[in-house]
Computed example of a mutant assay.
Amino acid sequence: MLKLNKVHHIAIICSDYERSKRFYTEVLGFDIMQETFRAARQSWKLDLSLQGVYIIELFSFPDPPPRPSRPEALGLRHLAFEVDDVDAAVHALQAKQVSTEPVRVDELTGKRFTFFTDPDGLPLEIYER
């Protein structure tokens, strides 16, 4: 059987590199580990970490094709982040003009959560610890 240790990173392709860079760093609080421009591909690659853990590769490419990203579309459903307090996280997001859905309770775990989107409409979730 294949032995996986952990998720290494999540790759996200964005339509507006500077807008998404600001969102992931200034709104969500990720730290920049490394930023690289790949001239041959006309592409930026931004390595982002959260509390010292490498998590996201943010890419820009010229004219990427659209992809459905609604929570119920085939493929990646959403990306979820754990928070200590959903209400505080919602308040922090809304203070940065990020709209959130109403807070719900997971019927299986009893934990509170809500959804919002990144600048390209990728569904993101905050889930209470």
Rank of each mutant, 00 (worst) to 15 (best):
E72Q: 15
H9V: 06
T100W: 04
S20L: 01
L28C: 05
S15L: 10
Q97K: 10
R67D: 08
L74N: 09
E128M: 01
E82R: 11
M1S: 15
K96N: 12
P123W: 14
D84A: 12
R129M: 05
T36C: 04
A40M: 09
H9R: 11
R22S: 13
L76R: 00
S20F: 03
P123N: 12
V105M: 11
V98R: 04
A88E: 03
L48P: 03
K3R: 07
R19G: 00
A92G: 05
V105Y: 07
E125M: 03
M1V: 15
A89H: 10
T114H: 09
L28G: 01
S15H: 11
S99C: 09
H78D: 06
R67Y: 07
L50Q: 13
A11Q: 12
E72S: 13
H8R: 08
G121C: 02
V90Y: 03
V90N: 00
R129L: 12
G121P: 00
I13N: 04
E72H: 13
V83N: 02
S69P: 03
F61I: 08
S43P: 09
L4I: 15
K6N: 07
V7I: 15
H91V: 09
R22A: 15
T36M: 10
D87E: 12
A89L: 00
P65N: 10
G121R: 08
D31P: 06
A40L: 05
R112S: 10
K45A: 14
D31C: 10
H9P: 04
D63R: 12
F116V: 04
S43H: 06
P68Y: 03
S43I: 06
L93K: 03
E101L: 12
V105K: 12
R104T: 04
Q97N: 12
K3H: 10
E82S: 12
I12R: 00
A11H: 00
I10N: 08
L46G: 09
Y54T: 04
F23E: 05
D120F: 05
R77K: 13
V103C: 00
F23M: 06
E72V: 09
K111N: 10
V83H: 01
V7H: 09
G52N: 07
K3Q: 14
D120L: 08
S20W: 04
A89T: 14
E57T: 07
T109S: 15
E107T: 14
G29S: 01
E107K: 14
L46Q: 11
F113G: 05
F61Q: 08
D31S: 15
Q51G: 08
D63I: 02
A40W: 03
F37I: 05
S49K: 12
Q97M: 04
S69D: 11
V86S: 02
L2Y: 14
L108N: 13
D85G: 02
R22G: 00
I55F: 04
R112Y: 08
S69F: 11
L122T: 09
M33W: 03
Q97E: 06
Q97V: 01
M33H: 09
E35A: 13
A89E: 12
D87N: 12
G75T: 07
V53T: 10
F30W: 08
V105A: 01
H78A: 07
Q97R: 11
P66T: 04
K3Y: 11
R41Q: 15
A11M: 11
G75M: 02
L4W: 00
D85R: 08
K96Q: 11
